[in-house]
Design a protein around this nucleic acid. Structure first.
Length: 104
DNA sequence: ACGTTGACCGGCG
DNA sequence: TCGCCGGCCAACG
């Protein structure tokens, strides 16, 4: 799996996250944990930062449910609009957390 | 080649 | 939960 393909895989998965649900960077990394062993949440964060513009990036938050630095406003507005369970300034991970298995 | 920098994470106090 | 720390790994200067 080349770096480019990995980026594709990340974006594809993010596109499958249903409205109102979210995944953490680490969860995305784990879900894509494959034979090549790449499971870096930090790498997923970097990818979203650079290529997130084309996918529902607001549905990916950190493990504490905190929104991406610098984009809190935009993310909150979108999440609120699609009914994502929120607890103050963050996402209620227990209630909104989603995994690929659920969507099949 | 090398140090620094992140849209990160789990462990510990 | 918060803060600090060490591990993580590609991108950048």
């Amino acid at each position: 799996m080349t770096p480019d393909e990995y980026v594709e895989a990340v974006l594809d998965l993010v596109e499958r996250i249903p409205p109102g649900r979210v995944m953490s960077y680490g969860a995305v990394a784990d879900a894509l944990a494959d034979r090549s062993g790449r499971t870096s949440a930090r790498l997923v964060g970097a990818i979203m930062s650079r290529h997130g513009g084309s996918v529902p990036w607001h549905r990916v938050v950190n493990s504490a449910g905190r929104l991406p630095p610098g984009h809190e406003r935009e993310a909150r507005a979108r999440l609120r609009a699609e009914g994502t369970p929120l607890r103050g300034e963050r996402v209620d991970m227990a209630a909104a957390g989603w995994s690929p298995e659920e969507g099949m």
